[in-house]
Amino acid sequence: MWDYTDKVRDYFFNPVNAGVLETANAVGEVGAISCGDALKLMMKVDPETEIIEAAKFQTFGCGSAIASSSALTEIILGKTLDEALKITNQDIADFLGGLPPEKMHCSVMGYEALQAAVADYRGEVWSDDHEEGALVCKCFGVDEGMIERAVRSNKLTTPEAVTNFTKAGGGCLTCFERIEGVLAKVNEEMVGEGLLSFDEAYRIGSVDPRSLKQKAKPKAAVGSTPVETAATETRKPVISLDALEKAAAATVVVGSAAEAALQPAIGLPRYTTVQKIKLIEEALEEIRPVLKKDGGDCELIDVDGANVIVKLSGACVGCQMASMTINGVQEKIVAKLGIPVRVVPVK
């Protein structure tokens, strides 16, 4: 039996069903590159039997997102649409042998993409886009509906669990009160339905948001684009999640061929090298005041296709948080360009 780290690593380094499915008649797209994760699920469904005959995916995200997307396509093959709709995000995580709490949002993204694809095939309206007034987390574009579905499907009872499964609250935490409100409301409903005990249900005010900030250990807080929290110290996989994330771009979405394949899927812009350098410099200028405040700096050295070569200086050199700083710089540049790139530091 595979253990957690082996199977996630296998589906990351050797993803199956990655790419474009030309014969797809059911497509579901969720997430956004600017928020750090995006997934396009494509399925070929037999119109007579509604059996899923083929499935492929394109994703932008961390190693766990790639592994979860790949696993999803394996799970749904050969199933009818009704059978596929019964699949939960926990089924995806279980197929991989488990995911750490802070990466469960990757399995939720797969679940949401599947729901969207089935709705697309049936001509129904399904969207993870928020309606006006329903947006809860601006940092990651998470609405009330997504939180409610995650809470119900996984019996979540803490704000921290909501963040792990949806990323809501994983950035600035200004949405904490709204997360609390949705969680408490849904838990109350679940108690009434006999799905939770009264003692298990969350109550507003039970958690001090300041304790979550201290516990989160963010990878970086550069500019206005938050990044995912690092893996907890008590649960370190054999191959680190950070290592998977660093390699993720190079494996699935970075490189001229992969980038070109992804562009028609989610409308990525195309730039000349000069235009790209200018936008990257603008992103670095926005980041620079934060780095200089801590005695460091980041300089653009070169742009080689989808690789952005940078050099850290000052206090950033040799700092234990250097890799986290690079991840933050990458997030900022991706948000500025709107296309996947990999930031590579040099000495």
Score class of each variant (00 low, 15 high):
residue 124 E to N: 06
residue 150 A to G: 11
residue 214 Q to W: 07
residue 257 A to D: 13
residue 244 L to N: 05
residue 212 L to E: 04
residue 106 C to G: 03
residue 67 A to D: 04
residue 53 E to F: 02
residue 170 G to N: 07
residue 159 P to I: 12
residue 278 K to L: 08
residue 108 V to Q: 14
residue 45 V to R: 06
residue 202 Y to V: 08
residue 190 M to E: 05
residue 37 D to V: 12
residue 130 H to W: 09
residue 11 Y to N: 07
residue 343 V to C: 05
residue 224 S to P: 10
residue 143 D to Q: 05
residue 69 S to L: 07
residue 310 V to P: 02
residue 316 C to H: 00
residue 206 S to H: 08
residue 98 G to Y: 09
residue 201 A to C: 03
residue 221 A to T: 14
residue 49 T to D: 03
residue 120 D to T: 10
residue 240 S to Q: 13
residue 117 A to F: 00
residue 153 S to M: 12
residue 44 K to S: 07
residue 143 D to K: 08
residue 284 L to A: 04
residue 280 I to W: 01
residue 131 E to V: 10
residue 78 G to K: 07
residue 95 F to V: 03
residue 113 A to I: 07
residue 216 A to V: 04
residue 29 E to C: 02
residue 339 I to H: 00
residue 209 P to K: 01
residue 210 R to D: 11
residue 24 A to V: 13
residue 335 A to V: 14
residue 232 T to K: 06
residue 178 R to E: 15
residue 253 V to D: 14
residue 255 G to S: 05
residue 232 T to E: 11
residue 156 L to T: 11
residue 167 K to Y: 14
residue 13 F to V: 08
residue 70 S to T: 06
residue 30 V to M: 06
residue 206 S to M: 11
residue 103 K to E: 14
residue 135 L to V: 09
residue 44 K to T: 11
residue 113 A to W: 07
residue 90 Q to K: 15
residue 169 G to K: 12
residue 212 L to M: 12
residue 304 D to Y: 01
residue 205 G to Y: 10
residue 37 D to K: 13
residue 346 V to E: 10
residue 111 Y to N: 02
residue 112 E to L: 15
residue 250 A to V: 04
residue 107 S to G: 15
residue 258 A to W: 01
residue 281 E to D: 11
residue 164 N to E: 06
residue 269 P to T: 07
residue 199 D to H: 06
residue 124 E to Q: 15
residue 17 N to V: 07
residue 215 K to W: 02
residue 88 T to K: 14
residue 271 Y to E: 03
residue 139 C to T: 09
residue 293 K to S: 12
residue 184 A to M: 06
residue 245 E to V: 06
residue 94 D to V: 06
residue 156 L to S: 03
residue 221 A to R: 10
residue 72 L to H: 08
residue 107 S to N: 00
residue 343 V to F: 05
residue 230 A to L: 13
residue 249 A to K: 13
residue 217 K to M: 10
residue 56 K to T: 09
residue 47 P to M: 13
residue 145 G to D: 08
residue 245 E to N: 14
residue 39 L to Q: 01
residue 261 A to N: 10
residue 58 Q to Y: 10
residue 66 I to K: 01
residue 282 E to I: 08
residue 344 V to T: 09
residue 270 R to G: 00
residue 37 D to Q: 10
residue 16 V to C: 03
residue 33 I to H: 07
residue 309 I to S: 04
residue 12 F to C: 05
residue 126 W to Q: 07
